[in-house]
């Protein structure tokens, strides 16, 4: 039985000539809350994409518990037990809040097309159980009273909460949160702090967090990895990181609520 919920071993990825991630190693124990930080463009989201199967690493391996998962499809990895949220919120906009979560919960059902079309007892039971569990999830995240609204009409902070609820609906063992409090005001961030910490008990899940809000990161993360230009420049407890000169040099500490480049929005999609 592996002692790490998630173990990434010297992951590397290049895009053309650009090395986006070099030799990244992440060791996430059970029920831990770790952070992944770095200046913009450092490769943090790319790292998440590597972990969740969106990209295939050029080198290195990813282990979810005992199972090696690098090179697998994202849907396989989600089924294996790793879920994520997205930096540039990717909700199912036209669907209602609860349907966003129910869609993800569908991963754990056993009914196929036939059972669905015939509405067999198993299918009916699963659908009811899904609704029940999803309402509880929305409760935990504090967004139940908007459950039938279209998710794209939600305020920004609630959209981020919804993404977390949706990820949790897949019953993950490892949860990757990509900038969960970006764009929130300090009141909301304060609430999220407690919420994120409590997720581990409520859902028996290990969490890896990307964030720019240093206050939050230093507060709740037990261990932090710092990367810059794809290279790991420091690892350790919050105290170690805060004192680390390389980190200070690379980073100069970004203040809360101000990240002009991230806030400018996503680059236009350029697909193959």
């Amino acid at each position: 039985m592996s002692k790490f919920a998630l173990h990434a071993d010297r992951l590397s990825l290049s895009f053309g000539g650009l090395k986006a991630v070099s030799d990244l190693t992440i060791e996430l124990p059970q029920k831990a809350l770790h952070g992944l930080i770095g200046p913009n463009g450092a490769g943090k989201t790319t790292a998440f994409n590597l972990l969740t199967g969106v990209y295939k690493p050029d080198q290195g391996a990813v282990y979810l518990g005992d199972e090696r998962i690098d090179g697998r499809k994202p849907s396989y990895i989600a089924k294996a037990g790793m879920a994520r949220t997205f930096q540039n919120i990717r909700l199912f906009g036209e669907l209602s809040v609860i349907d966003n979560v129910r869609t993800a919960a569908g991963l754990r059902t056993r009914s196929g097309l036939f059972r669905t079309l015939m509405r067999t007892p198993l299918h009916v039971a699963e659908e009811r159980a899904i609704t029940e569990r999803c309402i509880e999830l929305l409760d935990v995240l504090g967004i139940t009273d908007r459950k039938d609204e279209q998710s794209k009409s939600l305020p920004y902070g609630d959209q981020r909460r919804l993404e977390i609820a949706r990820a949790l609906a897949t019953e993950p063992k490892v949860l990757l949160l990509d900038e969960p409090v970006a764009g929130m005001n300090s009141q909301e961030k304060h609430e999220m702090r407690g919420l994120i910490e409590s997720l581990r008990e409520t859902f028996d899940v290990s969490i890896l967090l990307i964030e720019h809000d240093m206050g939050l990161v230093m507060d709740i993360c037990e261990h932090i990895t710092v990367i810059d230009h794809g290279v790991t420049i420091a690892k350790g407890s919050p105290k170690d990181i805060q004192a680390n000169p390389a980190v200070i040099e690379a980073y100069l500490g970004v203040p809360d609520d101000s990240d002009p480049i991230a806030d400018a929005g996503p680059l236009p999609e350029v697909a193959p």
């Binding site: 849907s75 989600a78 997205f86 199912f92 869609t103 991963l107 897949t170």
Partner: peptide, 17 residues
């Protein structure tokens, strides 16, 4: 419907698109 709305997110939520 999730595939239609956001295929990448659907895949990430376990839907084998």
């Amino acid at each position: 419907l999730a595939i239609r709305e956001n295929e990448i997110a659907a895949e990430a939520m376990g839907v084998d698109t």
